[in-house]
Nucleic acid binder design. Sequence first.
DNA 1: TCGCTTGTGTACCGTTTGGTAAAGTGTTAT
DNA 2: ATAACACTTTACCAAACGGTACACAAGCGA
Lengths: 186, 186
Amino acid sequence: MPKIVNERADILPALGEVFREHGFEGASLSAIGERTGLGKGSLYHFFPGGKEEMAAAVLAEIDTWFAAHIFKPLREDADAARAIAQMFDAVERYFESGRRICLVGALALNDARDRFGPRVSGYFAAWTAALEDALIRAGHGHKKARGRAEEAVATIQGGLVLARAMNDSTLFQRILTRLKKRLLDD
Amino acid sequence: MPKIVNERADILPALGEVFREHGFEGASLSAIGERTGLGKGSLYHFFPGGKEEMAAAVLAEIDTWFAAHIFKPLREDADAARAIAQMFDAVERYFESGRRICLVGALALNDARDRFGPRVSGYFAAWTAALEDALIRAGHGHKKARGRAEEAVATIQGGLVLARAMNDSTLFQRILTRLKKRLLDD
DNA sequence: TCGCTTGTGTACCGTTTGGTAAAGTGTTAT
DNA sequence: ATAACACTTTACCAAACGGTACACAAGCGA
């Protein structure tokens, strides 16, 4: 009986895509099995906690990725403006110009939020806080930096909603471009 | 056998709340029955098409409401700036300061979008088009009005995501206030 | 070669799912 | 009074659900 995977981290990307497509409730074990190529036996071997543990693992991986590639540079890069510009590049690549949605945002919208409350709120709290920090260092007034950061993160999330609703990835790119310009030039 | 309701429109609000809470897949017939107080028999009497017809009816009602209370004033009010201001008031009331999510946006994020594609895209297309129209009449440049309208609608949607994710309705209010100011003063 | 660990496949569990059928009960118009 | 209609109740269905149990195969160190 040959191994298919040997690290549970190997199937997290596929897991993430299933949850993105169907949501938490809609992602059935059969859909998960199909996408990952694993049977129930293997899935419950890697994730004894079932669907909930799978989603939690995906969220944790997302957290880690964003912390390393976006939040940390925003907080620590000596050139704050450059970090902000890089955030926009990373966001556009990560969300594939709006063709890919934000799983955390999607989970936040229905009752799945209650299952993953701290993870969901922590993700957005970390993002806005890091961006606020960068904005201040880039010369924005302390008082307005938090508001601008919140609004920017919201605009990105909303851009994903609109781009997916209208099936128009150029819309997401336009929104990002405008937002980036406003944050850096203003 | 007493009537519980006699117009199917009477149960649309309750239906909408169930879909908002659980999403399309997650809204089981038993949950729907509980919330509406109707058994399956009655539900299938009013909606022979099942869940899909229920959700479609809710979406149609939402479309109608927004068309009458938001899109139409934006397009037709002689005082465009006032129409925009009223849009923000209506949005804050309708979404209960971020405690209530946008069902259309939520459906857009997972595979439920494919079931209701035209309705979902039409909703956002109508909103952005109406706001663009008002922005032009309020003195914004023709060329940038569309971009600003798209970004504004996206920010509202994203504000709902963030407010719900962080369980903070003041966040939604702050975002609306900032956005309104920028659209009207800039 | 022997166990042991780590995965995998399959059969199975009880429950819930969306949906159907039909009988029954009120109301209303004739 | 009666027949038609509108709605509700109940029972029922096959399929799918999340999850469990367990036998079994491969790789590996001793």
